[in-house]
Design a protein around this nucleic acid. Structure first.
Lengths: 345, 345
DNA sequence: CTGAAAGCGCTTACAG
DNA sequence: CTGAAAGCGCTTACAG
């Protein structure tokens, strides 16, 4: 039961030769196959062998070499969470936090690690595309896909399982996605605003190269028809853009009595702009948000908004991704949204 | 020049068999070794061979299998950025954003991918410890290390190159770290407050199980001696804690005329608490922050603070980590800080 | 400059 | 239940 320890120059002087499965097998007095079977579920391993292996692992401090394992299983055991946005957005927008938390949690249940990558620049996107397709991950969760961004096409072309958060404009048929029912959520909000007696209802949309942007605008139009163009302004989901868009709206349509702002963060900016213009919320102008994120409760007044089911969205995204990894065809999941009434409308 | 395409069940029906280096070699009419040499710098590859390989790679869509490569090179080509904090902190605290941006950028220059992992719970820490030591990464940047947290010890024990951001309490001799000179920064701020005529100077410290917590308090005491204990309160770097700590300070020492708040985010909370208590900043109570993060300029009044050299810190952390990966001994880098005067003091 | 060969550390039929 | 062996896709001396 001698453990041979040949001197292996490992490219690093600092760590002593890392124990391999052969070392464990030698210490345990069994074959490498038995150690491997123990590690992979313990089927077909006798009680005595199991105990010997357990002891040997403890003694040697063995940790599996994931590269060797992945080389044969063709599985990495991790997936990428790709945020294709300027890095600041990650930190400013609480929605990403919600999604990240949900996905991490659901993946952990499958013992899969989530790797967060921020693709802020085009150079990033290239490097990440290469990295992701080099086998490092089994698939990718693509957050915040913009029409015309080449990343999705790249990943798809290279055969990497992908699921997009939100409807992937132009790829609805061949890419899996999970989305909240943005259009219906928008309808609910606008109908609610009308039911409260508002008649001049403006909208601050999201970016119109994303499904959240176009679908919520469509929902608004479902209720109000092709409204006065002066009532429609676009933002980019940041608080600053909500503030600027609202100022513009007040300028174009000073008589408006309500605004549907397509994200809570932008709605916080809208409230600030209204205050600055001397309009009371909700007495002079009612404000409806979208997301039901943390900022909806910290804003004064608290925001009436549309709840997105973040946890379910996360769970569905993960489920769809793992299905793709297992070879299933793409699928889409649409989740209902819900009106949450607070103080702003 | 026939390329054999055996049916390989790859655990995934969706992607066609991924081309290997052998496929490229066959298409190019050279040996696998030549393809590999081309990929790794192109030394000892003739012009004609190089061109044939380039063509073959384009034709086959070849991408290196990182697991196979790492198995032989014993290098992963990526490092982990481990945030050992509740996930919300990542999103609330702009300092992490600064560090993340800096490290990503510097690593990209070395063609190394940064993998962000959030170790929010103990279960996370275990899973990440295992993942990180399974060879997925060449080393780890440990952000925000708390005294007594087992993660650092675990990683060190398993021989993973690590560099800590800030002084790793209890591990100063055997772990690399890069830190701003917290103690001197605190001294500069407190001396500045005194030079402005303030005499009852309170402090809201960071967590006292971190170097930023204890070192800044030490700097404060360097200038003021063992001040009135009623003037010393601790926070946890969140804005909410800064607000609460300040309220407590006002309660314990209503006559104070200045507060050194050990992070800008907490300082923003302090300003809010002072406003609520009817104290004007800086006329009634001057407020000094720490970090010079984004919030220092968005707070009203803007914050007089101590600038941390985030970009240099990031660069030094990466340099130290790569040195460790190359087998060098641990080293520490201390970077100077600088007073930035704005409106709050 | 080039190819043949050994080996990185695993998993998994296969035969017993 | 167990071991011997093949093979995953690369890199890198080595010999030419």
């Amino acid at each position: 039961m001698t453990v041979t320890e040949p001197h292996r120059a490992r490219g690093s002087r600092i760590s002593p030769a890392r124990p391999t499965m052969d070392d464990v097998a030698a210490v345990a007095g069994v074959s490498r196959g038995t150690v491997s079977r123990f590690l992979n579920g313990g089927h077909n391993v006798s009680r005595s062998a199991r105990e010997a292996v357990e002891r040997a692992i403890r003694k040697t401090g063995y940790v599996v070499n994931q590269h060797a394992r992945s080389l044969v299983t063709q599985r990495a055991g991790s997936v990428a969470f790709i945020l294709s946005e300027p890095q600041d957005r990650l930190f400013e927008d609480p929605n990403f936090n919600n999604l990240l938390r949900g996905c991490t949690q659901v993946l952990a249940d499958h013992d899969i690690t989530l790797l967060l990558t921020v693709a802020a620049t085009d150079a990033d996107r290239v490097r990440i595309g290469r990295w992701v397709t080099a086998g490092h991950v089994d698939g990718a969760l693509l957050i915040s896909n913009h029409l015309g961004s080449p990343l999705l096409g790249d990943l798809k072309e290279r055969g990497l399982p992908v699921v997009v958060c939100g409807r992937p404009l132009g790829h609805e048929r061949d890419v899996s996605y999970a989305a909240a029912d943005d259009r219906d959520g928008a309808r609910q909000m606008v109908e609610y605003l009308r039911s409260r007696g508002h008649r001049r209802i403006g909208i601050v949309t999201g970016p119109l190269d994303t499904s959240g942007g176009v679908d919520r605008l469509d929902g608004y139009r479902d209720v109000l028809g092709a409204a006065d163009p002066a009532l429609v302004v676009s933002g980019d989901y940041t608080q600053a853009s909500g503030e600027a868009a609202t100022a513009k709206l007040l300028d174009q349509a000073p008589d408006l009595d309500a605004i549907f702002v397509c994200s809570d963060l932008m709605a916080a900016g809208a409230v600030a702009a209204l205050h600055r213009a001397g309009r009371r919320v909700p007495q002079d102008v009612a404000v409806g948000g979208f997301d039901d994120s943390k900022v909806a409760t910290t804003t004064t007044p608290s925001l009436t908004t549309i709840r997105q089911p973040w946890m379910r969205l996360s769970a569905e995204m993960v489920r769809l991704l793992l299905a793709r990894v297992d070879g299933e065809d793409p699928a889409a999941v649409l989740l209902p949204t819900e009106l949450v009434v607070r103080d702003s409308a």
